[in-house]
Amino acid sequence: MRPAFSVIFLTTLIGAAQGLFFALYGAELTLLSQTDAAAGRQFLFLGSLVALVLTGLGLIASFFHLGRPERAWRSATMWRTSWLSREVIALPFFMLGLLVYGSAQYLGWTQTVPIGAVTALLSLALFVCTAMIYASVRFLQEWASPLTLLNYLLLGCASGLTLATLLAALLGMPDLVPPYALAAIGLTLLAAVSRGASLVRNARLKPKSSVQSAIGIKHPRIVQKAQGFMGGSFNTREFFHGQSAALLRSVKWIFLLLVFPLPLMCLALALSSASTAWLLAAFALQYLGLLAERWYFFAQANHPQNLYYQTIS
């Protein structure tokens, strides 16, 4: 499939925002009772604001994927059958939850745990809707797996926790840095196992169709010499990335390096040296790697129609 950068930015930005909110809410439930109440509320407010900005940027990016942005509201009308429609509904509700939760922290409300619980459920629902847009496409074997949902969840939470660690250091919450960093390390390792499993699975896939089944001719030796028309078409533009196998391999190794070992090294160095610079490097490298990972996720999916449109004459 042809990767769309609008969708790449959408999924990586909102994933980091969702992971960040889980980190904030987890801190409110377990860690902030040991810190100054006013400082804790300020941290939760500013963290919610960052998550809201990231989600808003992702929403803005998604509009560049629309041919007629003024008709965007129609994408929510098929919510009974379409995961995309459900995502369109879940995203603004999650943003509303972030707004209410952050406002409650800013105003000093004491009963914010129920608001956080609702927002956490909305965040989880958004993860499911986003991932199922792709996992439910059965004819794209690379996506049609429970690992797609697991990877979206783990990668988003890993990047969100890395960001939360950075924010804790920048906003004067040093007590939160070690637990956040350790959680980010653990989730990054889990994400590495999950993403590695999907790569191994996809490498072993065998196409369910063939050139013979694509054109309805059962002769054992068929070689396609031309596409059938002179130039490209919607099919060749939208359902094939047009890049070489060598580039795909390069992008795969780039994202594996940037998303997993380099951030882990930076987080470990940050824990040992108490350096904010290493935390900034960890998040920056991991997010850049996630952009490459998401590009590879789309490019690796092999649409069955490519069996027919193999060669452009």
Score class of each variant (00 low, 15 high):
L126R: 05
V118N: 01
L153Y: 08
D175R: 11
Q141D: 13
A144C: 11
L126F: 10
L155C: 12
L126P: 02
E142W: 00
T162W: 09
G172S: 10
A131S: 14
T165P: 09
Y152E: 06
L166N: 04
V137S: 03
L163V: 09
L140E: 05
Y152A: 11
A168K: 08
T119Q: 02
F139S: 11
P146D: 11
S159M: 13
V118D: 01
L176N: 05
M132E: 14
V118C: 05
I133T: 08
V137W: 04
V128H: 05
I133A: 05
L150I: 14
N151M: 06
A158W: 14
L153I: 15
I133F: 05
T119F: 06
A144K: 08
T162P: 07
F127W: 07
G116F: 04
T130A: 13
S159Q: 15
G172K: 10
A131H: 03
A125T: 14
A164S: 11
L167G: 02
L153D: 00
A135T: 09
L163K: 07
Y152K: 07
L154M: 09
V137P: 01
L121T: 03
S123I: 01
L153P: 00
S159P: 11
L166T: 02
L167Y: 03
M173T: 03
M132L: 11
G160V: 05
I133S: 07
L176R: 06
S123Q: 00
Y134E: 04
G172Q: 11
I115C: 07
L167Q: 07
S145G: 12
C129E: 06
T162S: 12
Y152S: 08
A169E: 10
T165M: 11
P146W: 13
